[in-house]
């Protein structure tokens, strides 16, 4: 028996040896990579142009070579956009809008996430008889165009004296995000095993205690995803900011839009590009650091159903 096995091994060893060819990238793979690279280039062109333009002087821009690198790298435009660019009649730069955006961001985040988290938790894990109907209503609300509720919201915010200030913008952000976020949280909480809820109901029975001690610690993942999604969408918003912001509390995007649509005097393209970059940097930083969560967020926001 042992001899036989040995014999077999010898036979295998003495079999003709074909060295396996070193694995080559197939021509199809090369084709795909080349195609994808060209597409990637197309995606990068606007960013490249914006970046180099923001470092150019106006003299060089006027010469017209859009794609060439700055002959003199200067931060003049960045400084100008940040400190003295005009938005309407105020010429204090984008820093005003930046700080407004920051001030809008935090109350918006806290309000929108708090209300939708609690609502999602109550709808998913507690026995609410009309939960199904309410969810359907929220689902519809998530798709309603802003214009149809715009004037009533202006009147309502004016009535509670928040129209035209940061709180108005923050509250409207929270209101508009509520349906989508509630559905996201509700779908996430729906996957928590019913038995855990049963155990918690028997152990404590308190709605809030179960939320803070059991459910909230289990929400880490979805909370981060929603947080990223909300930060970018609040930061990038223009319509709510321009409608509810009033003169002194407009977010950065509104400043930027005012700057680029200005029709008097000569347009300083390098200032515009620097301003655009300054507006884009916060969400881009988030994107490049936690891109995967960002993608999860936008797809969760898109496919709520």
């Amino acid at each position: 028996m042992a001899q036989k096995a040995l014999g077999a091994e010898v036979a295998v060893r003495s079999a003709p040896y074909f060295p396996r060819q070193k694995k080559r990238i197939s021509s199809r793979s090369i084709g795909i990579i080349v195609f994808l690279s060209i597409c990637a280039l197309f995606f990068c062109i606007p960013l490249y142009v914006v970046v180099i333009t923001s470092f150019k002087t106006m003299e060089q821009i006027r010469q017209g070579a859009m794609f060439s690198l700055p002959s003199v790298w200067t931060l003049e435009a960045w400084d100008h956009a940040w400190n003295s660019a005009c938005s309407g009649i105020n010429c204090n730069g984008l820093k005003v809008g930046f700080w407004n955006s920051v001030q809008i961001l935090f109350p918006s985040l806290i309000l929108s996430i708090a209300i939708s988290m609690i609502t999602g938790y109550a709808l998913a894990l507690w026995n609410v008889r009309w939960a199904g109907g309410f969810l359907f209503l929220l689902f519809i609300c998530a798709f309603v165009p802003f214009q149809i509720i715009m004037f009533p919201l202006i009147s309502m915010t004016a009535a509670i004296k928040v129209y035209g200030n940061i709180w108005g913008v923050a509250i409207v952000h929270a209101v508009l995000a509520m349906p989508v976020l509630t559905l996201i949280f509700r779908n996430y909480y729906k996957d928590i095993p019913q038995e855990i809820m049963n155990a918690a109901v028997m152990d404590s029975g308190s709605f809030w205690k179960i939320f803070t001690e059991i459910i909230l610690p289990m929400s880490g993942n979805i909370l981060i995803v929603v947080l990223i999604m909300q930060i970018t969408s609040i930061w990038n918003d223009y319509l709510i900011g321009v409608t509810f912001g009033g003169m002194g509390s407009q977010p950065m995007t509104v400043n930027l839009a005012n700057l680029i649509t200005i029709s008097t005097g000569t347009t300083r393209y390098n200032d515009n590009m620097a301003a655009a970059l300054q507006t884009a940097i916060p969400p881009l930083v988030i994107y490049f650091f936690v891109g995967k969560l960002f993608v999860q967020g936008i797809t969760a926001g898109a496919i709520k159903g």
Binding site: I45, T53, A257, L284
Partner: peptide, 30 residues
């Protein structure tokens, strides 16, 4: 083709992270 998937994904998705006002500004310039 799995090679470079994460790089390509990052490049193709970054426009989504910025405000449409910024996108508009960039294209207006182009």
């Amino acid at each position: 083709e799995k090679r470079g998937e994460s790089l390509f994904r990052t490049v193709f998705l970054y426009p989504l992270a910025v405000s449409l006002i910024v996108t508009g500004t960039a294209w207006r310039w182009l």
